[in-house]
Amino acid sequence: MGALDHLSNMFDCSSGSNRKYNNRKQLQTVEIKVKIDCEGCERKVRRSVEGMKGVTSVSIEPKQHKLTVTGYVEPHKVLSRVAYRTGKKVELWPYIPYDVVEHPYAQGVYDKKAPAGYVRYNQDPSMRQLTRATSTEVRYTTAFSDENTGACAIM
């Protein structure tokens, strides 16, 4: 921080009016997984978030058990409100399209309950990378390979 920055912070006259801009919420889309069995459940879930302050739109996909809320809201508040008002188990949408994942059928990523075209989103960095073969393992597997006929003297 330079001297000019320090002086400008000391003599800043707009510090009082700038506070309301810092507290402004961002427009965001919150996707929630909630079990929706019938039209009554769908109506109950929709009504639980429609009256919330800052919500601009609500869309529900009952076959995928997905609730999408768009607006100036915080995700954890939407999550807790849906759980409280409906009494259902809710969680943030844990799936991403399988095109985005490097190895969608790796252990820990593949989920049989996921909707078509989606896999479970796993943020654990150790689960993202598959184990690679060491150099000695590669040497032994290529020594007995059918493609490399001159490498094995035993056969």
Rank of each mutant, 00 (worst) to 15 (best):
108 G>M: 14
91 E>M: 04
138 V>A: 03
148 N>F: 14
31 E>L: 05
33 K>V: 05
93 W>I: 15
69 V>W: 04
52 M>N: 02
52 M>W: 02
84 Y>D: 07
105 Y>Q: 14
124 D>S: 15
126 S>W: 08
51 G>W: 10
69 V>L: 12
41 C>E: 03
137 E>L: 00
39 E>G: 09
55 V>C: 13
153 A>F: 00
63 K>S: 15
139 R>F: 12
30 V>E: 09
35 K>M: 03
117 G>W: 07
81 R>S: 14
116 A>K: 04
109 V>L: 08
39 E>I: 00
22 N>G: 13
69 V>N: 06
35 K>Y: 13
130 L>I: 07
88 K>S: 15
29 T>A: 09
62 P>N: 00
31 E>T: 06
49 V>R: 03
27 L>C: 13
143 A>V: 07
85 R>E: 15
45 V>R: 03
113 K>I: 04
125 P>D: 06
68 T>S: 11
25 K>D: 08
99 D>A: 07
63 K>I: 15
60 I>V: 13
40 G>H: 03
112 K>N: 10
85 R>H: 09
149 T>S: 10
38 C>M: 06
145 S>H: 02
110 Y>A: 15
51 G>F: 02
90 V>C: 11
21 Y>T: 08
61 E>G: 11
138 V>D: 05
80 S>F: 00
155 M>Q: 12
124 D>K: 05
44 K>S: 12
57 S>L: 01
35 K>I: 09
150 G>Q: 04
22 N>A: 11
43 R>E: 15
3 A>N: 09
115 P>Q: 04
25 K>N: 13
133 A>E: 15
48 S>M: 02
59 S>D: 14
152 C>K: 10
60 I>A: 11
118 Y>F: 02
13 C>G: 06
149 T>F: 14
144 F>V: 07
140 Y>L: 05
135 S>M: 08
82 V>G: 09
95 Y>W: 09
103 H>T: 08
82 V>S: 11
51 G>D: 10
75 P>I: 04
99 D>I: 03
97 P>S: 06
2 G>Y: 02
87 G>I: 01
152 C>Q: 14
37 D>R: 01
41 C>P: 02
129 Q>Y: 02
110 Y>R: 06
3 A>W: 04
26 Q>H: 03
153 A>P: 09
36 I>A: 01
41 C>D: 15
9 N>A: 15
107 Q>T: 12
